[in-house]
Design a protein around this nucleic acid. Sequence first.
DNA 1: TATTGTTATACTCTATAACTATA
DNA 2: TATAGTTATAGAGTATAACAATA
Lengths: 156, 156
Amino acid sequence: MNEVTRQAATRLRAVIRTFNRRAQVDTGEGSPTRSQQAVLAWLEDRGPLSASELATLERIRPQSMSQTVDALASRGWVTRGAHPKDRRQVLLSLTKDGVAAVHKGRQTRQAWLTDALERRLTTEELDTLVAAIGLLERVVAEESDPQRTQDAAQGS
Amino acid sequence: MNEVTRQAATRLRAVIRTFNRRAQVDTGEGSPTRSQQAVLAWLEDRGPLSASELATLERIRPQSMSQTVDALASRGWVTRGAHPKDRRQVLLSLTKDGVAAVHKGRQTRQAWLTDALERRLTTEELDTLVAAIGLLERVVAEESDPQRTQDAAQGS
DNA sequence: TATTGTTATACTCTATAACTATA
DNA sequence: TATAGTTATAGAGTATAACAATA
């Protein structure tokens, strides 16, 4: 094991830990929680999805997703619709309020970060960061792990 | 607001979200939980600390830290000792088992990351990442915010 | 039988409120 | 009065177990 790699891993874990602390912004009463925000963002990005698909995307159990979806439906941010071909499935769709909520939530959660990036990095440093984000996306990408292929392939 | 900054922020938040999912490795029965691991790491790094100091470092309320400390003491990973000058304070110290636990926990939690860094990045790309980690450390650093100066200065 | 979804229950992490002991 | 620490309680987020409906 390369020592440079080991140190990079330690520092990366530490700074992401700090990042996560900073990211716990107070979003106020009317805003989605973090897990709710994630689900709303998936629905905005990919359109109607089933609870199973959302659970796979978020890498949590379907039972856990069930509760998040329930909360979102109670708030009027998503509606449940029938799947055209498979009556077991329930397709979740964003309502108008849901779209507004995800936009507001994203703006609130991202404000501190865009502010910090603007104020604390030069243009060149921002370029370096963007390049590194691309590398990180590669690093954290899912393995083509035989054990998880089945799950990963579920999204129809 | 610069569009490049906005997109960088969105991608950074997304990749860190994925990172966090990947980081939720199964550490098994005998290992510290994530919050326990963090406390053990602080004690290893800085020596005996009070519960208040640990709460400040972790940016959580003292009442919350109390519970984590309680769990660590029950496991025999930390011991409570008297503060030499202030009898209100309780100084937490790592036991031998605690040192072993934090080492094992770090190794387990970090394995997937060092592995992925080694296998998916070239040496030059790793350099870019390390440079970006330095930038991120600056970005997430705490403001010299007048409202929090008192808290931040507590660590004696 | 397998898959989708739900309900019940429990654990981790953190929060607020209220309290004791010490400064 | 202020600070350090604790106990009680609650909510968010996730897990496993058990079940119903549909494929």
